[in-house]
Design a protein around this nucleic acid. Structure first.
Lengths: 358, 358
DNA sequence: CACTTTCGTTGGATCGATTCAAATTTTGCT
DNA sequence: AGCAAAATTTGAATCGATCCAACGAAAGTG
């Protein structure tokens, strides 16, 4: 009996059991999709035939073509698939997206790929009703690919300044400015910035000229916000070290080494993500530098890990749950209109920031 | 131009652009799937027509039916979708599953649902080549549904004792026994068990009779392992409190309240998951009970969070990454054979366990 | 120039279902 | 029984592509 699956390789089709049961395929179809309209006797006969022939129910592949709707939304990123489960920000976002999907009964397809070649193919052949695009890095290419499918789609993080792209994001300038103002208000004047990517792949210290040419709008906006506030209180921003990280532990630590090798190390670190900030806390602790007494650290994102870190992290909280909900809504209720939503952020003061010593 | 998407509601088909370009649909298809075999001039003409008519490339819905393979695997659970992103064990497992998928170019579809009704439908209509089933709770129903699809599938956690079900899991009895032996070896004799679900939904103290009738094999096996070892050193297992949790903070804390209300509270806690163990550490710390001096705690799973907890958690590590890899392999290289794999576990001793006081 | 290759193109068959107007059978009522 | 209304069933059309055998045209060969 094990050979049922192994041996005969021709899968059973609805038409097969229709013939076996002596009914038309129309009726056979009804037995599965609207059982109440077929006569009891016939229904049982068809079901028995299905059972006997090892029929696994109507194949969704066929139904799909007819129905048109997949009832699933795709979430795409240029990072490896495991990004969805590893990155704290992505996780919170995904949790809220999945809640919204659960509520409406929609499924989720994760779309990603090891290389660019694959990515294009995966996006082109994804069985989804729309895309939510995580624009972390390489966002523009991803957005381009998603657009070509001509399906509803929404970019998370207004990384693309292209007004023709539907997007949901936060006010990065205002948020960054808020973070900086919190620190300047505490009396800090010596800063360093641990930045997200300015352009594909590179890491390291960024010159003021490079800053202006940043490819990624999110990174550029946050930096603008920081500098706006620092300038306001008279800090010479051209002397504030800005280190570009890949939002991972390795490049962040490299950045910290560089920054703290300076003669006058900063008393406050502006980190463009909580992930960077959390690595920073760890690094400082290993270096026996006390947070917040020796160095204050302010993150960006508002992930749950920031609550339980040692010390708990002051950060700019994004309304992640709200963003996820809105993104799903935008896909499912897409009306073809392109809308861009800018959500407000909030400063959450915790124990990682305090007035500088002295 | 925005009305392109909004206005005309009839989507463009391959046949439409074929006609527009004055070629057969066969040639039009070739332009997209094997561009190298069509003459340059014709290819450009067809592409131009596609561009002009706003064609988003061959619709995967159509291609799918012909091709037969979706090139995606479904991961199913009876928990809400957000379980995949919230639960530490699930996260690590998903990360390894997604790595394996990335390597082979397969996509991932998350399948779940708010209610049972939906779940059945979602499984029946999931567009996947096979299922990996997370058998945490309600596994049997899930497995049943997945089997009915007659697609390759693998159960994670040998929750079902049904030999006809392909499954990948760990040796729960051996693992639990290992955990208990570690504690008995340190000299502990007063224990309490914080268990996973025995049957759907219930929580609370479990009587020895109930223990034997546990629906979930994983829970039962771990308990068997614990008790095997405890009996060996002469502990009366019928007097060891076993509290059934829902693998969440609330029920775990309730269990701890109950357990520590006893006249002679335990000196060691056997937790059936790291999640439970981590909540326990937190609760004990809030109660000003020192771990490991007042109470030792041993978990089960080996999630990354157990490394950084305060104190770091002694636990039974499952080869989660290996399990994920094997599961994906089992689906993609399914040969119709039903295989059950039992992987070894490993005791990882950290700071949450020590000899009892005195 | 007739004859084989090679290259590109065509159009019908197929994938597996759902849908719906029309045909047929049942049922209800007098 | 006779007839209209209601309940079922049928079968062709459709969803959007890919595949492939057959065919026509251009290129190569003796």
């Amino acid at each position: 009996m094990a050979s049922l699956t192994a041996g005969n390789r021709r899968p059973v089709r609805l038409a097969d059991i229709a013939k076996a049961a002596g009914v038309s395929h129309g009726t056979a179809s009804n037995v599965f999709s609207r059982p109440e309209i077929v006569r009891d006797e016939v229904r049982e006969r068809v079901k028995a035939a299905a059972e006997a022939m090892g029929y696994g129910g109507p194949d969704p592949k066929g139904r799909l073509l007819r129905a048109g709707k997949v009832n699933a939304i795709g979430v795409a990123t240029a990072e490896p698939l495991s990004y969805f489960f590893d990155d704290p920000f992505a996780r919170v976002m995904m949790a809220s997206i999945s809640q919204a999907c659960d509520a409406t009964g929609a499924g989720i397809s994760l779309v990603s790929a090891a290389n660019n070649e694959q990515l294009a193919w995966n996006i082109q052949s994804a069985l989804v009703d729309g895309f939510i695009v995580f624009c972390i890095e390489g966002g523009s290419r991803l957005v381009e690919l998603a657009r070509e499918r001509k399906l509803p789609f929404v970019a998370l993080d207004l990384d693309s300044q292209d007004g023709a792209v539907a997007a949901i994001g936060v006010d990065n300038v205002a948020g960054a400015s808020l973070a900086a103002r919190h620190l300047t208000g505490l009396g800090h004047r010596r800063f360093a910035v641990l930045a997200l990517s300015f352009a594909d792949g590179s890491t390291g210290l960024v010159s003021p000229e490079q800053v202006r040419t940043a490819t990624y709008a999110g990174t550029r906006d946050r930096l603008t916000g920081y500098f706006q506030e620092l300038s306001r209180v008279g800090v010479d921003t051209s002397r504030v070290p800005v280190y570009e990280t890949a939002n991972d532990a390795a490049s962040t630590k490299a950045g910290l080494e560089t920054i703290f090798a300076a003669k006058e190390p900063p008393t406050a670190i502006l980190a463009m993500s909580d992930k960077i900030a959390l690595v920073t806390l760890e690094w400082l602790s290993a270096r026996k530098l006390n947070v917040p007494n020796d160095v204050s650290v302010v993150g960006f994102d508002g992930v749950p890990e920031a609550i339980v870190s040692e010390p708990p992290l002051t950060t700019i909280a994004q309304p992640i749950a709200e963003m996820g909900r809105l993104a799903v809504k935008a896909i499912l209720e897409s009306d073809g209109k392109v809308s861009r939503q800018l959500l407000p952020v909030e400063l959450i003061v915790r124990a990682s920031s305090a007035a500088p010593r002295g």
